[in-house]
Design a protein around this nucleic acid. Structure first.
Lengths: 349, 349
DNA sequence: CTGAAAGCGCTTACAG
DNA sequence: CTGAAAGCGCTTACAG
């Protein structure tokens, strides 16, 4: 049986009000009784019950974090950032894994509300924000529970969001390839209806345009954001007449597939083919050759998402507007033939 | 302002006791009043406050999950397993990331206790279990909070544990290499004082012995469980006189380093060198060549850890003894030259 | 079948 | 400075 505030009070021979006061630091208490209480706490190994505290104070000091799929290498760094910043401010976090199932995400939101979390970070990195999700989030806001979205797209709805500069990143990647002399640069997108794909495609087009290269529709293809899909797409591109000399893919997993396809077709990377990925997932460092990629600052996104939440909860003063766009950096490794270890972070300008 | 049970009672014109009864399903209620209550719940969009419920019932239906480092690819699958099974039984989980810091793990345990979790899964995969951790866990048990350890070593203490058959896995890996004709098989361990290293080494020795191969101390070396460490270790082994024709490493990250070293030294894998890793982290599928590895069933470990916890909490009937050892499978891919796709799961016998 | 009351472990005005 | 009381939102005997 865990000791309660009553036990401490009895032992220190004071009222529970007094115990509460010394523990919270609110209200005056004689140094002597303070010591008595502290000794009692110590000897009983008393730990206040946060459930009771939360109920009374109407603040649980907990956060909810909903992720689309914890098994996807995109997410662990986000979790890490959220965890770390949350703890810094004394919050603990409920992790909810949608397991790729959007419906489950909705259910998680309900649960978190019932659990009395003080705020929620919803990280899907998905395609469009479904109206029902937006509605649910509005409902939560009305109930006093702020939500911050960790998304891959600019805000189209009125919910604070931390997102990534997809277009700018794609622009950097493509420009890099052009600067290395490539003229036939292919683009492998993910799902064609995904906003991520769309924006990364736009960055690709912009780079071509700014550099006076003509756009060639036959060099553009779409896949599924997975390794095998990327491999198939690359195989098609590389076996056609006049194959591309470089491929920019809309995510790293597909880029890994491209590397595999090149190997199977006896194309050397980077000599015969340059490859750039997108996301900067941990493993890209160890592919053969190491993959040049546009690194999405996932860890930082996690940190910032918590800060935005704290601002809304009034725990931290407002330092900025509602949504934040983060820059992604081009990390240059061996897959393009450029000098390794260089990081290009200049803005799209 | 969220509606409370009072609001529902008022609206349905019954007492809060009645509302509680229809919601919990305990106690008889007329069908008519039941409907009235349900309608009130509906129209107010009432969600019971789980904080209050937990306080009263002395059960929070929450679990704590402590992991050593969420950024390590070893952990996400564990989290996934824990999450999934927990939700199946209606539990939500607090995720605590130690960020490699053991002290933080201890602090997390305190926090979880204060939060009133019904049980805790502590997953470190670390070296020895420090006495202070064992002590803390005992303390929690006495306070009525069961703990299950997700560990890489057999139980040396009296705490329920889910662990992996390290020795058996290493035995399978080494036997596989021997069966392919290798005679000079090197072993690269992790930290020399880690139990994981020790047990995997034992499995390696056992396989040599059973197959009548003599043990060669000069083929055994230790590193740090990291990619670069593995690469360095391999470089030494491969540049000596009479280099090994196969290397078995104590984890996948080091095996990836071995692959890199071989490439740098112009050794072909698997023709000039066979490589086997351990853990089965997701990325091993995409190395060049794909890595043969002993796959630790991390996802299953997560599932089972929750089940063990549930048993202790009396939510699930006891189905087994206190600790559980899981088998690891040898997943055969391209790095040894054997037929790909084969899985050897036969026990050490 | 239904309601009033007590109580889970806290915090916080309100008196003294 | 300190204590008694009310109350956070629930559940659960106890009466009726």
């Amino acid at each position: 049986m865990e000791p309660t505030i009553k036990d401490v009070a009895k032992r220190a021979r004071v009222s529970i009000s007094t115990v509460s006061r010394v523990l919270s630091g609110n209200g005056r208490v004689t140094e002597e009784t303070r010591q008595r209480v502290l000794r009692a706490v110590e000897s009983l190994n008393y730990q206040p019950n946060l459930l009771a505290q939360s109920l009374k104070k109407r603040r649980s000091h907990t956060l909810g974090l909903v992720v689309q799929n914890i098994a996807n290498p995109f997410f662990p760094d986000i979790v890490r950032g959220v965890e770390e910043k949350a703890q810094e401010y004394g919050y603990d976090v409920f992790l909810c894994d949608n397991r790729k199932d959007f419906q489950r995400g909705l259910a998680h939101l309900d649960v978190l509300q019932k659990r009395g979390v003080d705020g929620i970070i919803y990280s899907s990195m998905g395609r469009l924000i479904e109206p029902i999700l937006a509605f649910k989030i509005m409902q939560l806001s009305e109930a006093g529970i702020p939500v911050v979205l960790l998304w891959r797209q600019p805000p189209g709805i009125n919910i604070p969001m931390v997102y990534n500069d997809e277009k700018g990143g794609a622009y950097k990647a493509t420009t890099h390839l052009i600067s290395l002399g490539h003229r036939r640069i292919a683009f492998i997108g993910g799902f064609q209806d995904s906003l991520v794909t769309k924006e990364r495609f736009e960055g690709y087009c912009l780079a071509l345009e700014k550099n006076g290269l003509s756009f060639d529709q036959s060099l553009v293809t779409y896949s599924d954001f997975e390794v095998n899909g990327g491999r198939e797409a690359a195989r098609h591109l590389l076996t056609r007449d006049l194959p591309p000399t470089a491929i920019f893919t809309a995510n790293d997993l597909m880029a890994i597939g491209v590397l595999m396809a090149a190997k199977q077709l006896n194309k050397k990377v980077p000599e015969d083919l340059a490859v750039v990925g997108f996301d900067g997932i941990p493993f890209t460092e160890y592919t053969d050759p190491p993959l040049t990629t546009v690194c999405v600052p996932r860890y930082e996104m996690g940190l910032i998402a918590v800060e935005k939440l704290l601002e809304q909860m009034g725990e931290k003063e407002d330092s900025s507007s509602d949504s934040i766009m983060l820059e992604s950096h081009l990390v240059i490794r061996g897959s393009c033939g450029a000098v390794e270890g260089k990081v290009i972070s200049g803005a799209l300008s």
